[in-house]
Amino acid sequence: MEHGEKNVRVVQSVQRAFDLLERIAVQPEGAKLSELADGAGLNRSTAHNLLASLEALGYIAQDRKGAAYRLTGKVNRLQRLDAEAERALRLRLRPVLQAVSQASGESTFLGLVSGMDYLCVDAVLSNKPLHLAVRPGERKPLVVEALGHALLATDPELAETVRGDDPDAWNLHAREIVEAAKLGFALDLDSQNAGISCVAVAVTLRSAIAVAGPTSRLPKARLIKIGEKIRQELDAVRPANQEWL
């Protein structure tokens, strides 16, 4: 079918699927099949097939068969934070990065969820001759490193999406992610990059802070202490009675 002044061809099934997503999004408690079908002008069978596809892809969910459909967190993970929100978070967390880097003597950085990766958006580098030179703009898979493990351990929906996207990589790191959920922080003890160890703490479902450096300076006991220091500094700047964003 044709749509719009620019004569852009819109695939009808895609248009209908997004229409259903938008209708679910404006219902805080979700919406049932009959309500969605009637509102979109679709027969129940067509609406059910579209909804089943969206559910299989992980964008919507039902608590039980016949219950209302609701959005999952996967929709939010399609994009980064908007520019103003990201800037506000970076400004609020910059003193934490500086304090933790000074206390630990190691490079400290902030990463945000970006699809199946995390994106480094701010960093304070160690002034020691031998240090991890992480830079804003660097991107790494969530399932591979400690910062990603901290985020996966905090957000079950994100974890389920990543596990479905790359089950082999997930199986390689599943034990570390489970351990991160138990401890409240993730550790990388010289396992991903030879000679480098790391500790990471989730700040929100979509952001985490990590400290990394030479394994010779970062045995497990020291990493745990640094993890505790990150938490202390976060508590010192955490907004009172409100969310980070």
Rank of each mutant, 00 (worst) to 15 (best):
residue 228 E to G: 06
residue 193 N to E: 08
residue 91 L to P: 00
residue 95 P to T: 05
residue 62 Q to P: 00
residue 7 N to V: 14
residue 54 L to S: 07
residue 162 V to M: 11
residue 193 N to Q: 05
residue 146 A to S: 13
residue 104 S to V: 00
residue 39 G to Y: 03
residue 229 K to C: 08
residue 113 V to K: 05
residue 23 R to G: 08
residue 161 T to P: 06
residue 36 L to T: 00
residue 9 R to T: 09
residue 104 S to E: 01
residue 50 L to R: 04
residue 147 L to V: 15
residue 172 L to D: 06
residue 99 A to V: 00
residue 19 D to L: 14
residue 48 H to M: 05
residue 151 L to T: 12
residue 48 H to Y: 13
residue 85 A to L: 03
residue 146 A to N: 00
residue 185 F to D: 04
residue 40 A to W: 10
residue 26 V to G: 01
residue 14 V to P: 09
residue 39 G to S: 10
residue 152 L to D: 04
residue 59 Y to C: 08
residue 89 L to M: 11
residue 173 H to L: 03
residue 140 K to C: 09
residue 21 L to A: 03
residue 10 V to H: 15
residue 217 R to F: 04
residue 232 Q to L: 15
residue 196 I to M: 06
residue 29 E to K: 13
residue 228 E to D: 13
residue 95 P to V: 01
residue 147 L to W: 05
residue 94 R to M: 10
residue 208 A to R: 05
residue 183 L to M: 02
residue 240 A to Y: 05
residue 26 V to D: 03
residue 74 K to D: 10
residue 17 A to Q: 14
residue 62 Q to G: 03
residue 189 L to N: 09
residue 219 P to F: 01
residue 69 Y to S: 03
residue 55 E to G: 08
residue 149 H to N: 09
residue 125 L to A: 08
residue 81 L to H: 06
residue 191 S to D: 15
residue 156 P to C: 04
residue 145 E to P: 01
residue 36 L to I: 00
residue 173 H to T: 11
residue 50 L to G: 01
residue 100 V to E: 12
residue 22 E to R: 11
residue 103 A to D: 07
residue 116 M to T: 06
residue 126 S to L: 01
residue 55 E to R: 14
residue 189 L to W: 13
residue 225 K to L: 05
residue 2 E to R: 14
residue 237 V to D: 13
residue 166 D to N: 15
residue 98 Q to D: 10
residue 209 I to H: 14
residue 203 V to N: 08
residue 109 F to Y: 09
residue 107 S to W: 00
residue 176 E to F: 04
residue 31 A to D: 06
residue 229 K to D: 09
residue 220 K to F: 03
residue 194 A to F: 14
residue 39 G to I: 07
residue 179 E to Y: 01
residue 80 R to A: 09
residue 154 T to W: 01
residue 127 N to M: 02
residue 21 L to G: 04
residue 117 D to V: 11
residue 129 P to G: 05
residue 97 L to V: 00
residue 240 A to L: 13
residue 20 L to S: 07
residue 160 E to L: 09
residue 43 N to F: 01
residue 224 I to N: 07
residue 29 E to N: 12
residue 227 G to L: 03
residue 159 A to M: 06
residue 213 G to N: 02
residue 217 R to H: 13
residue 194 A to I: 13
residue 38 D to R: 14
residue 146 A to L: 14
residue 97 L to S: 07
residue 12 Q to R: 15
residue 80 R to K: 06
residue 147 L to Y: 02
residue 111 G to H: 13
residue 45 S to D: 11
residue 54 L to Y: 10
residue 65 K to Y: 06
residue 50 L to E: 07
residue 150 A to R: 12
residue 126 S to T: 00
residue 138 E to G: 08
residue 162 V to H: 07
residue 216 S to M: 12
residue 102 Q to K: 14
residue 163 R to Y: 03
residue 145 E to V: 12
residue 52 A to S: 14
residue 21 L to Q: 03
residue 91 L to V: 06
residue 57 L to E: 15
residue 115 G to S: 04
residue 204 T to L: 02
residue 186 A to D: 07
residue 7 N to C: 12
residue 209 I to Q: 07
residue 100 V to I: 01
residue 15 Q to T: 08
residue 4 G to H: 13
residue 135 R to K: 14
residue 212 A to E: 15
residue 218 L to K: 04
residue 10 V to L: 11
residue 131 H to A: 05
residue 187 L to T: 02
residue 3 H to P: 00
residue 87 R to G: 03
residue 226 I to H: 02
residue 44 R to L: 11
